[in-house]
Amino acid sequence: MVYRFFNGIGDYALLMWRVFRRPESWRETWKAFWREVDLLGLDSLWIVSIISLFMGAVVTIQTALNLDDPFIPDYYIAIAVRESIILEFSPTMVSLILAGKVGSNIASTIGTMRTSEQIDALEVMGINSANYLILPKIAASVFFNPMLLTLSLVLGLAGGYLAGEWTGMVVSSDFILGLQMGWDPFYISYAIIKMIVFAFLIASISAYFGYTVKGGAVEVGRSSTTAVVNSSLAIIVFNYILTDVLLN
């Protein structure tokens, strides 16, 4: 078990070594990059939007219920909501959702290419298949996920605002006031750093499980499950490490 884990890490490192090489054709890699942005990024807009709106709303209601005390002014609720959304909920939750959606997509696409010998076909042509298939996916995720994060932050706070308004728990002027109080721009950098690390983890770990599939359709299915589980675990672990390193 432990042996398999470290063996896997070694294989993963070797694969990344082959991924980060100069592409045989920059033009083809560039084309593939935009294809991936479309497939992995743009295609996730709606799910990220919906999740963020509801997440913001729920966080606001929860916080309002917990801080329901006449001595605590209502704008404190907005501050708390802002911190939780920017620091934790948006980057982590959105990444976990993407690990499920994008991770399984990456693992099964690459896994199918492996079992149907499409990867061998690339290698025979003299193309570094790891580089051509995986680099654009990692690059597209690292490039686009921070944009998804920005969207998520905006919609999360909007969801909070709307929930406060509709339930009457936080008056809108208080909410706006709270959002502006004690504002530290580093929080945004912090969230983006997290998002970039998570994007790399999702794309590279899922690609690893797809690329190393042996067998047929059943194994491809299994690898896509394993990819989602492992990239989610990696996100949780790195979330802890990054929080510790960046905020302490």
């Binding site: 199918t112 010998e117 061998d120 025979v124 003299g126």
Partner: peptide, 15 residues
């Protein structure tokens, strides 16, 4: 490798 062509058992076309 560029002088080699290969037809795979299952075709291996990029789907």
């Amino acid at each position: 490798r560029q002088e080699i062509g290969m037809v795979f058992q299952g075709g291996a076309l990029f789907d």
